[in-house]
Design a protein around this nucleic acid. Structure first.
Lengths: 292, 292
DNA sequence: CGTTTTGATGCTGACTTGGCATCATTTGCG
DNA sequence: CGCAAATGATGCCAAGTCAGCATCAAAACG
């Protein structure tokens, strides 16, 4: 079966005349006559009724005309869609997200700018830890990852640093210490602390604890097991205790203050697979660079 | 664009391997390799990523695969539908109906039998007078007509007589005359009569009037302008008067009795266009003959 | 380091398609 | 009525398309 035959058939069906159709198709009439006959033989049924003068669509032809038009439409659509996908105008991006990423303005502006230029690209968002994202990138389960922490990407992955940050003390804005612009370790010795779940935040929470003990501060961990930044902040706001979180994390009724001597640098990075030559991905990376 | 290429593409995409796909398609591997390249050139985009070892679908390829499958499915469907239409298994029949036709059992049994054998044939029913049906048949606006009356079909139309009938007197079963099995003209002289609308029933009502006067009966037309048999019968049942209708017309609480000497033969006919060689139409006619 | 796997390329013959000339039939016009 | 126009069909040939075969190139495997 040849698409050309379908095009020819549609032309003849529309003109109900071989000569006019052949002119429209820029081929000679006998060629057209034959192609229609071949199409009919291929289908095993007549598409036209041969009247003493001229032709008309048969019942089978009427049915086939509808389908032929749809096939041609679909065929053209298939081509343009493939090209749109190729050029990155159309498609789906699977993006891994560390929850903290949403607190950095560069993320919002990147998506805003990308969406303005590529409205037909769909996103699939996958919230997961940085380690899981490295994993997912190498197994090609996601196309891009917004990774947060201090881990360096594994080999074969490329990355772009989006933001630098360090940790500080989160406390309710009604807390007496909120008035101070810089907190010393002595200020918070004995204060009750909220602590992240050691499974969800893995080495992250360990590293923070190590940084604290390094400056001679042993936090009084009052409540623990919080599995998200949102949960942590909600508890801080309720006055359940203080928490150590990245400085950029903002929430109503909460202030974050640096702690003298305490440092645990963290980075927000966009990470992707090195040998992916996909236009959607590289377009996204380009927009991220522009949005910084 | 060639459907074959789409089939080849789907095979390669499914196998992700030229050799296996070529075996499945019963062609040599180089031929397949080239057809895929030609398809890619035709589309203007790569469908596969050439990896150092083997191939994978590109993003464009994934998109195109979906569309290619649909095109192939549709193409096969188009063919089988055309053949089904050709053989009369599928399609639409436009059938003209004189309202009286529904009172003859042969109509019901014809449709029942036809529907059992051809469940995929759709009907479009068009209620219209016999004259309008002859017209519609010649202009190919309907495929079949259930025509009622005494008019002979115009030339170029073929017909099959389904039922013979004659006219009689319709009266409420509570009417004193209902006990008589045969009515004489003297019985009904002076009785109030319901009469059909002379426009809707045209020459039909004239002819009946002529038949009445021919036997010296001048009906006392009390109410007139009824445009359907249903309306007429409803009025008869209400005791508004008597009516002259075909004997076969039956309704609850109404009896129809022959009138001595009065005759106006009417026929129910199936009429169709002589040079239509459509299978659906001829199948329907065959079933009608069987149902008689 | 040779063998296997996997895709690409060059060449040739067979099939497909289009153009040209021509035919057959019907219709319309003087 | 007879001739021209309209309309589709057929025969033949050249150009294009496609498949098979042999072969190459690169990478992986043992």
């Amino acid at each position: 079966m040849n698409m050309r035959r379908l095009r020819y058939f549609v032309a003849v069906a529309e003109e109900e005349n071989f000569h006019r159709a052949s002119a429209r198709l820029h081929i000679a009439q006998p060629a057209l006559s034959r192609q229609i006959r071949l199409l009919e033989e291929e289908l095993g049924t007549n598409l036209f009724l041969r009247l003493p003068r001229g032709i008309t669509l048969s019942r089978a032809g009427i049915s086939y005309l509808e389908d032929a038009r749809q096939i041609l439409r679909l065929s053209e659509q298939a081509r343009s869609r493939a090209i749109a996908v190729e050029s990155g105008q159309l498609g789906t991006l699977r993006v891994g997200f560390h929850d903290a990423a949403h607190h950095y303005p560069v993320v919002k502006s990147t998506f805003k700018s990308f969406r303005a230029d590529f409205p037909n690209v769909h996103f699939r968002f996958i919230s997961s830890s940085s380690q899981d994202q490295f994993e997912a990138l190498t197994t090609n389960d996601i196309d891009l990852g917004f990774v947060y922490g201090w881990e360096k990407p594994v080999s074969g992955l490329q990355h772009l640093k989006l933001a630098d940050d360090d940790i500080g003390l989160a406390l309710s804005s009604e807390h007496p210490l909120a008035v101070k612009s810089k907190i010393s370790v002595d200020d918070i010795r004995g204060e009750p602390f909220l602590w992240a779940d050691t499974v969800s935040f893995r080495s992250h929470s360990d590293a923070i604890l190590r940084a604290c003990t390094a400056i001679g501060f042993n936090p009084n961990i009052w409540h623990q097991g919080l599995t998200s930044l949102e949960a942590m902040m909600s508890m801080v706001e309720s006055g359940m205790g203080l928490a150590i979180i990245p400085n950029a994390i903002r929430s109503e009724n909460i202030v974050v203050r640096p702690i003298e001597g305490l440092s645990h640098p963290v980075e927000l990075m966009l990470v992707w697979h090195g040998d992916s030559d996909s236009s959607v991905v590289s377009n996204f990376i380009k927009h991220t660079r522009l949005a910084m």
